[in-house]
Deep mutational scan, measured.
Amino acid sequence: EPSQADLDALLSAVRDNRLSIEQAVTLLTPSSGGGSGGGSMDAKEILTRFKDGGLDRAAAQALLAGRTPA
């Protein structure tokens, strides 16, 4: 399960175009075949909204942490 520091680094990389959204989703869902963790939004949607400015960093982190299976 990614830590808050991992999520923060991942969000920074996506925002700075050092990591594509697809690459980030793969890192967030290493063994689930890329499927959502059952959250209301999947990781790709969360990351896309964050990059487009629709979500701030704290909200994106909380959503990603919340949808990651324990």
Rank of each mutant, 00 (worst) to 15 (best):
A5S: 10
G66T: 08
E1R: 10
A59H: 09
A70Q: 09
I21L: 05
A59W: 04
V14F: 03
D52E: 14
G37T: 09
S32Q: 14
L10C: 02
R67F: 14
G66D: 12
L10D: 00
G35S: 15
P30A: 11
L7W: 06
A60C: 05
D56L: 07
T29K: 09
L64M: 03
L63H: 03
A59C: 08
A43P: 10
A65H: 05
A58H: 08
A5Y: 15
A70P: 09
Q61N: 10
S40T: 15
A13L: 06
G37A: 07
D42K: 08
R67L: 12
A58S: 09
L64R: 00
L63W: 04
T26C: 13
S20T: 12
R15K: 13
D52P: 00
L64D: 01
G39D: 12
L19T: 04
S36K: 05
A43N: 05
Q4W: 14
D8T: 07
F50D: 01
E22W: 04
S20G: 04
R49F: 08
R57Q: 15
T26Q: 13
R57L: 10
G39I: 13
S32P: 07
A13D: 07
P2G: 10
G35I: 12
A5W: 15
K51E: 02
A9Y: 12
S36Y: 14
V25D: 02
L55Y: 04
R67C: 11
L47C: 02
S32N: 12
R15N: 06
L64A: 01
A13P: 00
L27Q: 05
D16G: 05
G37Q: 08
G35F: 11
S31D: 12
A59Q: 14
A24H: 00
M41C: 05
E22N: 07
G34V: 13
A43V: 15
L19S: 02
P2K: 06
G53M: 03
A24T: 02
L64F: 03
A65C: 06
D6K: 10
T29P: 14
N17R: 05
P30N: 13
Q61M: 15
A5G: 10
T48N: 07
L10S: 00
L64V: 02
S31F: 07
R18T: 13
G35Q: 14
T48P: 00
A65P: 02
K51V: 04
L10P: 00
D8Q: 09
S31E: 15
L10M: 08
Q4V: 12
G66K: 13
Q61K: 14
Q4D: 09
R49C: 11
S32V: 06
S3Q: 11
L10V: 11
D8Y: 07
D56R: 03
I46E: 01
S40A: 12
P2F: 14
G33T: 10
G54H: 13
L19C: 05
A24S: 02
F50I: 01
E1F: 14
A65L: 11
R57P: 05
G33H: 13
L7Y: 04
S31P: 09
L28T: 02
S31Q: 11
S12M: 13
S40D: 10
I46T: 03
S12V: 09
L64P: 00
R57I: 08
I46W: 02
L27G: 02
G39C: 12
D8F: 08
G54Q: 15
A70T: 11
D8K: 06
L28Y: 03
G53Y: 04
A5F: 15
G54S: 15
A59F: 05
E45Q: 10
G53V: 01
L27H: 05
L63I: 05
I46D: 01
L55P: 00
L11C: 02
D8N: 07
G54F: 13
L11F: 05
A70L: 04
D16M: 04
G38L: 12
G66Q: 11
E45P: 02
S32K: 04
A62L: 07
T48W: 04
M41P: 10
Q61Y: 11
E1V: 08
E1S: 13
S36D: 13
D8P: 04
G33E: 08
E1C: 08
G33W: 10
D52S: 11
Q23S: 09
S32E: 12
T68F: 13
R18L: 13
D56G: 05
P30G: 09
G53A: 03
G35V: 11
T68G: 14
G38E: 13
M41D: 05
L28F: 05
A60D: 00
A62P: 01
T48K: 14
S32F: 11
Q61F: 06
Q23N: 07
A24I: 02
A13C: 06
A9P: 03
A60M: 03
S31T: 14
A9L: 10
S36A: 11
G53S: 03
P30E: 11
A60L: 02
L7T: 04
G33A: 09
V25E: 03
R18N: 08
K44N: 06
D42L: 10
T68W: 13
G37L: 11
S31I: 13
A70E: 11
R67G: 06
A60R: 01
I21G: 00
G35D: 08
A24M: 03
P69M: 06
A5C: 15
A60F: 02
G39V: 10
N17H: 06
G34F: 07
P2Y: 15
G37F: 13
D8S: 07
E22L: 12
S12N: 12
A62S: 10
S12H: 04
F50E: 01
S12G: 06
G53F: 04
A13N: 04
L11T: 01
P2I: 15
I21A: 02
A60N: 00
A70G: 11
E22P: 05
E1G: 09
N17V: 03
R67K: 10
A43I: 14
V25N: 03
I46K: 00
P2E: 10
D42C: 09
I21V: 06
L7P: 02
G33K: 03
L28V: 05
D6L: 15
G38D: 11
G37R: 03
Q4C: 15
D16A: 06
L19A: 02
G54W: 09
D42F: 11
L7S: 02
S40R: 05
S40K: 04
S40W: 14
R49E: 07
L11H: 00
S12F: 04
I21N: 01
S3N: 09
N17C: 06
Q23T: 10
G38I: 14
E1N: 13
K44H: 12
E1H: 11
E22M: 06
E45S: 07
V25M: 11
T29S: 10
A62H: 09
T26L: 14
V14E: 00
A59M: 08
I46G: 00
D42H: 05
R49W: 06
R57M: 13
R57G: 04
L55W: 02
Q4P: 12
L47F: 10
P2T: 13
R18W: 07
L10H: 01
A65S: 14
L55A: 01
L11E: 01
Q23P: 01
P30F: 07
A65W: 07
M41L: 08
T68N: 15
A9T: 09
A70Y: 03
R67Q: 09
K51P: 01
A60G: 01
F50T: 01
I21E: 01
K44C: 06
S12T: 11
A13T: 01
G34K: 05
D6E: 15
R57D: 04
A13F: 06
S36V: 11
A60I: 03
L63P: 00
G38W: 13
A60P: 00
R57F: 15
A24W: 02
A70K: 02
M41K: 08
V25Q: 04
S40N: 12
A5K: 14
A65Y: 06
S36E: 14
G33Y: 08
A65Q: 09
L19K: 02
G54P: 02
L28I: 07
N17S: 09
A43R: 06
G38A: 13
S31G: 07
L55C: 02
S20K: 03
L19N: 01
V25S: 04
R49N: 10
M41N: 05
D8R: 04
E22R: 03
R15P: 00
D6W: 15
Q61C: 13
L19P: 00
L11S: 01
G34W: 11
Q23M: 15
A5M: 15
M41T: 09
A70V: 13
P69L: 13
Q61V: 10
T26K: 14
L47D: 01
G66I: 10
S40P: 11
V14W: 02
L28K: 00
G33S: 13
A59L: 08
E45L: 04
L28N: 01
G38F: 15
A58D: 11
M41E: 08
T26A: 15
G37C: 13
R67T: 10
G37D: 13
F50A: 01
R57V: 08
S20F: 02
A60Q: 00
A24L: 03
S12R: 08
G54K: 15
D8G: 08
E22F: 04
A65M: 13
G35N: 09
N17W: 04
G39H: 15
G34S: 11
L11G: 01
G35R: 01
T68C: 11
D56V: 02
D16Q: 07
G35E: 12
S3L: 13
G33R: 02
L28D: 01
E22I: 05
A62G: 05
G53P: 01
D52I: 04
S32G: 09
S36W: 13
L7E: 02
T29H: 12
G37V: 11
G34M: 12
L47V: 01
A62M: 08
I46R: 00
D56I: 03
A59P: 01
G34A: 10
N17K: 10
D6Q: 15
A65F: 08
A70F: 03
R18E: 07
R49M: 12
A70D: 12
G34N: 10
G37K: 07
P69Y: 03
E1P: 10
G34Q: 07
T29Y: 14
L19I: 14
I21S: 00
L7F: 04
A58E: 14
G54L: 15
K44L: 09
L28G: 01
